[in-house]
Nucleic acid binder design. Structure first.
Lengths: 154, 154
DNA sequence: CCTTGTATGTCAGTTTTCTTACATCGAATA
DNA sequence: TATTCGATGTAAGAAAACTGACATACAAGG
């Protein structure tokens, strides 16, 4: 029935699941989930991004992201204007407390990634990175955007 | 704050998310989720496995797996004895309908994997596979088992 | 025999995430 | 100008998955 290939898809899922588990463990003392960390991580690199953009960057729906931002807002880790300056997008950014917590979280996550990759030679690291990027390219829709809640045809 | 490495963890998540999305799309006509497909996939290769073992193989909790098996049971895709022969484990297996549906699903999934990997040379494929396996090994707990619901200390 | 430890199944409740649907805003366009 | 389109935010509900807790069954060891 099925080819006896090394099952790259399965190993990919296994690696991702295990990485997420280790990150979850490492972030638990900080009361952060991996999703929340990813959100803060992107906010540092792209301050003022909209919740929808943040959702795309972290592979969630914008509804889930807004619900998560609500929590981060209540914890004082992020800020959003009450009303948009223009259009509908509400530009979101980290607070000082958010930056501080992210800093601690980043150290934990870096430790996990280091554990995962410390056995790699530089060329192996490049090879892995290129391979994964090639997978993303091959599965992309051509527009370079991963569209989940894309507008359905009328 | 953070190193400027190629962010392997992020690309890993991106690749896994995109692969799952494409699989979800491909399996949608068959009314199967990726989790359900994974479950059937493992059942074919290890008939008589327990729900707990199945959960470990598919990176879920045994509670979620039992709830999912309930659905597959109602659809007539799997069978489980009402009572265990010995111990508590209920050995689960595919029905003929389960095998048939899995066969169709496997064709779809193979198509997606092919799309993802068709651009790879044989050596690149081996390299990617080895790299991902190395990540799994490095993140493992030494027992070779990914333990999520592991017994907590008293 | 009794105790301990490990594994499994199950119940109950919570949390996270998704789906569906609608309203609003700006840009592009007829 | 009026319309259409795409993007964003939001609300309500459903689905999926997890956590905590408990009971049961076997194995190992005192």
């Amino acid at each position: 029935m099925s080819n006896q290939e090394p099952q790259v898809g399965y190993v990919l899922k296994q690696a991702q699941s295990l990485l997420r588990l280790r990150m979850e463990e490492a972030l638990h003392p900080l009361a952060l989930t991996v999703s929340q960390y990813s959100c803060l991580h992107h906010l540092l690199r792209e301050p003022g991004i909209s919740a929808a953009g943040l959702a795309r960057a972290t592979f969630m729906t914008r509804q889930s992201m807004n619900s998560m931002l609500q929590q981060l807002l209540e914890r004082g880790l992020v800020v959003r204007p009450a009303r948009p300056e223009s259009g509908r997008a509400l530009p979101t950014a980290l607070t000082a407390a958010g930056v501080d917590l992210l800093s601690a979280a980043q150290a934990e996550v870096d430790g996990v990634e280091e554990r995962m990759l410390s056995g790699f030679s530089p060329s192996e690291l490049v090879s892995l990175s290129r391979g994964l990027n090639a997978c993303v390219q091959a599965l992309g829709d051509g527009t370079g955007i991963m569209r989940r809640g894309a507008a359905p045809p009328r």
